[in-house]
Design a protein around this nucleic acid. Structure first.
Lengths: 144, 144
DNA sequence: TCATACTTGACTATCTTAATCATGTTTGTA
DNA sequence: TACAAACATGATTAAGATAGTCAAGTATGA
């Protein structure tokens, strides 16, 4: 699981949308790309590309025309960082050829297990939890 | 932690050397590169490059001249897959700029924790254990 | 009608990875 | 001593991924 800038930007955008989705209870005000890029220093046309992918994956809805923009299409408590990373297309590093020797096979299992371990971590990180912790200002939650 | 072909080859070579180190009790017979590439289908000149790195890192010794080759310079029970990956120079993905927002920072901590999780797995995989399991023929030890 | 904002597809630069090549040095052995 | 086996070193290359850009088009509210 490689965390590219693309994935990082995608998660920032999703978190931003999640933050805004709670504000207006009528859910009628989409967030413009411009607002996201301004706040998070993301290159504009690059974010366009990323949001397109997220829309195809079904995580966000787009509203065209003036006053248009993006909004989440699902509950922030139902999306994890892993979901986003997979939507962006983090290719698994376990796309290896069939092992040629027992040693080769055993090594491959270790790579798979290492990848699974990081996926497990990201699969437990829900957007809603991250926002909640951010509001309470408790960064560094891992360094207990 | 990205597992490249380079790291995979390095680990195969180290495992091969570890397997041979037990054979001759006098430890006087280094293994030629050729023997490793033949057995594991690794491009020759590429393995040369990799072994050079491992030598610099202190994990193997080289013996020049006719009848020369490589041998481990440490106990297989004292080397883990993580050691090898780091020797090869898997750069950490956490080489990011300083976070600009709390959201940014919190995300970064998740990436770090995910990376730490996979490092933990690899850091527990000793060469001696892998060889031992390989001899007993128990692949798939992770799918319990 | 006009400005705002999303849509789409093509395109480019830079970096990393994987791999190769040529040349040189060391050492055992006949 | 000559020779072959085997490592040492540095330069180089090809392919692919990543990050980011650009241009032309479409929808919609005011």
């Amino acid at each position: 699981m490689v965390i590219s800038a693309r994935v990082h930007y995608a998660c920032l955008a999703m978190l931003e949308l999640a933050m805004r989705s709670g504000e207006a209870s009528d859910d009628s005000s989409p967030v413009a790309i411009r607002e996201i890029t301004d706040r998070h220093n993301i290159p504009g046309p690059f974010l366009v590309q990323i949001l397109r992918t997220l829309r195809t994956a079904g995580w966000v809805q787009s509203v065209r025309g003036s006053q248009g923009g993006y909004r989440l299409s699902v509950d922030p408590a139902k999306i994890t960082l892993l979901d986003i990373a997979e939507a962006i297309g983090c290719q698994e590093s376990s796309a290896r050829a069939t092992p040629s020797t027992p040693l080769d096979e055993m090594l491959g299992e270790h790579w798979d297990e290492a990848a699974a371990a990081s996926r497990r971590v990201l699969g437990e990180a829900r957007l809603s939890d991250i926002l909640e912790r951010c509001r309470h200002g408790d960064a560094s939650m891992f360094y207990i």
